[in-house]
Amino acid sequence: MQDFMMLFRSEENPDFHPSPEELQAEIKLWETWIGGIAAQGKFGSSEALDFSGKILHANGTVTDGPYIELKEIVGGYILVKAEDFDDALQLAQGCPVLSVGGKVEIRPIMHFD
């Protein structure tokens, strides 16, 4: 088994103002997708990230917003255990970010030992 991180990338949508019911339905989708990975004993941990953020630049200035030039933001991540890249890709199938035009970036974790 190998550790992978999946980053959920999507474009920021300023017109997205979900109702509480829509938000609840959205949470259920994520919960079920993650639950499916956990049911295979392959779940590590996962966090969602807030849309707000600050960026510290090399020259010391601080700007608002998590996105720099791109309009794409990282909405969250999950750490999983998978046999190999193919297996990790299988796990990524059905990720709710895909149904809103986003993408899942899958990266193996590097271990230094």
């Binding site: 919960e31 079920t32 993650i34 639950g35 049911a39 004993g41 779940f43």
Partner: peptide
Amino acid sequence: LSLYNRLLQLHY
């Protein structure tokens, strides 16, 4: 279903 989803994340 939701409780099992959370349970499995805590303890498989």
